[in-house]
Design a protein around this nucleic acid. Structure first.
Lengths: 183, 183
DNA sequence: AGCTTAAAGCGAACATGTTGCTTCAAGCGC
DNA sequence: GCGCTTGAAGCAACATGTTCGCTTTAAGCT
């Protein structure tokens, strides 16, 4: 395991920072372990031993960036909250950088734990929204249903059919789930 | 572009064959461009020039393997046909080798065309099923809806939450779409 | 048949990935 | 506090993989 403080932590932070800087400067295609190591002031072998290879390192960094920063906005109703969140999610994930992070997270991930983390992030956000709905005495679907009916279709299209995606699609999915009558 | 016949075609075929053989013999982790080249009786530079890197080559081969071999079985009703197809799809795709192909196909695919091809395969199969239902004068959802409600949730779980998947889930999704009353 | 040209072969220069051994310092017991 | 233990980082030599310019081959055309 990684030692909590001191040198190990510094190395980890500096390697992560180096990845982000270089991603912005030279693009992810041009990233290599030696390049990252040099920027981080570290030897390549340190990275190979800690992360195994470049993909796992990128996967690590990608998951960090996919972590949501703030709780979903409260717009007063289940439907509005879901629409709002889904639109934002779709926008972030379907953008070139979002897709790149997603792919990195899925890729360098032999045991699937990073991918699982992504899904868990979405589930947390949805859980907050559903909790609010319950507080308003609205009837709400459970998290699994929202994952199946809203998140999964968006992800599928982002990964497999990225053309012609827009926020209207997110609203349609939510409408199909919570009904188009109440608003 | 690749010249249709003659040497180029032979090289392509022999490289693809080499990938499949070596995948079976040494596992995909151990695959390298020089190794594949040697087995195919080709120089590494040929592979680098034609495919760019190992991932794109693997992506190519993976898509070939994800192509469905036969039309979905006809079991007499829309619901049975969908259930049958979805169960088989889920079983194939969630197995370790299926997931590996899926990941390869997604991975070495800068422009998303290989991923699009995967989705197109599924859409074709579903289209056949829906066409049959129309022939029986059954009411059927359109292809997009089946993609959203059945294929996407399965894919999402395969990629992001591979634990505890079984064919019952496929049946639930179909039931949720075509209704649980008619059978 | 001869020409044109994309694609394959070859080999050397180069970059990247791997490994054993050494050095460093965080965390722990005294 | 002070030194011990141990996991992690550094270093350097080595193996492997990648790229590139140039040459050669043969597919497709006229």
């Amino acid at each position: 395991m990684v030692r909590p403080g001191g040198r190990s932590a510094r190395v980890q932070a500096s390697v992560h920072a180096a990845v982000r800087e270089l991603e912005a400067e030279v693009g992810r295609e041009a990233l290599t372990v030696p390049l990252v190591a040099t920027r981080a002031g570290v030897t390549p072998s340190t990275i190979y031993r800690r992360w195994g290879d470049l993909q796992e390192l990128l996967s690590d960094v990608a998951v960090e960036r996919l972590r949501p920063e703030k709780a979903p906005r409260d717009r007063g109703s289940l439907r509005s909250d879901l629409e709002d969140w889904a639109e934002q999610f779709l926008e972030e994930m379907s953008a070139p950088t979002g897709r790149a992070y997603l792919r990195d997270a899925l890729l360098g991930d032999p045991d699937g734990s990073n991918a699982g983390q992504c899904s868990a992030y979405a589930a947390e956000q949805i859980d907050v929204i559903i909790g609010r709905a319950a507080g308003r005495a609205e009837t709400a679907p459970d998290v699994e249903t929202v994952l199946d009916r809203v998140v999964a279709p968006m992800m599928y299209r982002i990964l497999f059919r990225p053309e012609g995606l827009d926020t209207a699609y997110a609203r349609e999915l939510v409408a199909g789930l919570v009904g188009t009558t109440d608003r």
